[in-house]
Nucleic acid binder design. Structure first.
Length: 250
DNA sequence: GGCAGATAGTCTTTAATCTT
DNA sequence: AAGATTAAAGACTATCTGCC
């Protein structure tokens, strides 16, 4: 069910009325000091946050949520720890608020997506590095991904992957490589021309190869060439568009 | 500067499958 | 069989971009 605004605000008023003190006010209950804070984080108007958060990931909450608690309950320089970091919303927001951070996650994808956004390269550096990485020769991946990618596109992805694995294994991977890996990972599949794949479900939803064959048939589509270098640069620009010069070099 | 179309992050709905 | 859970599909919508 989708509660309309009226019922939502009625619920909010009920909750606020039942609370005996006002926002920011501290009272003593049974010897425990309690300060009240309230906020809204789910309506569209309150979702706007830094562009640097905008990478695809399943199940992510709004940056305003950690922002609210970090701002009200911690000071500049405090350390914020997130034990289930996911795409890193909490620690990135903490970083933007000038806090120290620590995080971990069982899924290594978390580190791939989070860490590079603390060491943001200049767009020029990303462009120069992308130009150095071989575009490949249309090599296919080990598994059949032809229902998602045009052959040339897939060749570029395979070549980039090989390059990154090689950099990692030889200990040469740097912040520019890591940034490219983060952006490329978030561009792999999606539902618009900004992704490497043909139209598929939005990137927070997985699709099996068999299902994608059906989607292609129904939509009468075949994967067409996508220049992954251009798309990575475009997304790079988009990710940093809200950042101040200080935030970019922090 | 304002409009229209494109983009893409996220939300809702429906279908399929599993559990009790 | 009913209820719960998960998968699939696409809809919704704020923001961006290009154009006049």
């Amino acid at each position: 069910m989708n509660p309309d605004d009226d019922s939502e605000s009625a619920f909010k008023n009920l909750v606020l009325r039942s609370c005996p003190f006002h926002d920011g006010e501290t009272i003593d209950i049974a010897g425990i000091r309690i300060t009240r804070y309230s906020g809204e984080f789910w309506t569209s108007a309150q979702r706007k946050a830094s562009s640097v958060h905008e990478i695809s990931y399943r199940a992510c909450f709004k940056p305003q949520l950690p922002h609210f608690f970090i701002k009200n309950l911690t000071g500049v320089g405090s350390r914020i720890y997130d034990p289930f970091s996911g795409r890193g919303t909490t620690v990135i927001e903490a970083g933007l608020l000038g806090r120290q951070i620590a995080s971990n996650d069982a899924n290594p994808l978390s580190r791939i997506l989070t860490r590079p956004r603390f060491f943001i390269p200049a767009e020029k550096q990303v462009a120069a590095r992308m130009a150095e990485i071989p575009a490949g020769t249309g090599e296919r991946a080990e598994i059949d991904l032809s229902m998602f990618y045009d052959q040339k596109t897939e060749g570029e992805i395979v070549s980039l992957r090989q390059y990154l694995i090689n950099q990692e294994e030889t200990g040469r991977i740097d912040s520019v490589d890591s940034w490219i890996r983060m952006v490329a990972t978030s561009r792999l599949t999606g539902h618009s021309a900004g992704f490497f794949s043909v139209y598929t479900l939005p990137p927070n939803q997985a699709v099996s190869p068999e299902r994608q064959v059906q989607i292609n048939k129904r939509r009468k589509q075949v994967p067409e060439y996508r220049n992954i270098r251009d798309l990575i640069l475009r997304k790079t620009r988009s990710l940093v568009r809200d950042l101040t010069p200080e935030e970019r070099t922090r």
